[in-house]
Amino acid sequence: MGGCQSHGSSAKEGDVSETGEELSAITEEKVKNNNTQAAPSLEERPYLMQGYVSARIAEIDVDMLTALPVGFDKAEWVASHTVAFFKHINLLSSALSDFCTSGTCPTITGPDGMTYYWTDEQGKKLKCSGPLYTDYAMSYIQELLSDEDVFPTKAGSPFPNGFVFLVQRIFLYLFHTLAHLYWAHFRDVARVGMHPHLNTLFAHLVTFGREFQLLEPSDTTPMEDLIAVLHPRPAPAATDRAGTATDTPWEEGV
């Protein structure tokens, strides 16, 4: 079974195509930043610009979309949303695949040049190009979603032991996919007018992942500046990769 790891790097992205407006002309004062530290470079993080970060495909309440309905099975709720997130993010990344090639992204990176590594079935870390990592991740997720023993579709069929661990891994891959689009391709995304879709998907994914402890704080920290603007809320309790939170076990009742 494959996996992934991420490591920081001092490497920065090279030149990226400009959007219709001159991105650097927008001042840093337009970024919402409640910290006393200096705002991050808008040249490096154009997705923080107020004109872009406020864009959504619709005025939706992601908290309402995330909340578990009364009487609804938690595992079923998480499973159905996992399938939906995969379909939407896979579609979005496919639509933007012309921008992410082995030429533009010989190594897949996230914020501050962080490198994401794929781990193969033998436990060997692989340094991948952007499109190769995405292909590995989407193929892995598709295989899991198609496995009746992991994501059962028949009424009354039980979810397997370790279900939460597998969903956490899926959410991590999906998070990396969106983080790479923000870091390496946001100017391209904005130029074709797809940043409202990216913002909406990212805000919903992070909100859902935090609510059900599917994303750890250490996973989302590199994008915390964007998260704080898109959907500010307290950081969740730390969890381990087995799906157990420091205060409440996720799998209770699954």
Rank of each mutant, 00 (worst) to 15 (best):
M1H: 12
S6W: 11
G8F: 15
S10K: 14
G14D: 06
E18L: 03
T19A: 05
S24W: 03
E28Y: 06
K30G: 10
V31Q: 06
A38Q: 12
R45W: 13
P46I: 01
Y47Q: 00
M49R: 14
S54T: 03
S54R: 10
M64T: 15
A79L: 11
A84K: 13
F86H: 08
L91C: 04
A95C: 10
D98L: 13
F99D: 02
S102L: 05
S102W: 15
P106L: 09
T107H: 12
T109R: 15
T115D: 14
D120Y: 02
Q122H: 12
G123R: 03
G130A: 00
P131E: 02
L132S: 09
Y133S: 08
Y136E: 13
D147F: 01
V150W: 04
A155E: 11
G156T: 01
L166P: 15
R169D: 09
I170H: 11
F171G: 05
H180Q: 02
F186I: 03
R191C: 04
V192G: 07
H195N: 13
N199I: 03
L201C: 03
A203R: 08
S218C: 05
S218R: 09
S218K: 13
L226E: 01
L230T: 02
T239V: 10
T239C: 05
D240F: 13
T248H: 13
E252Q: 07
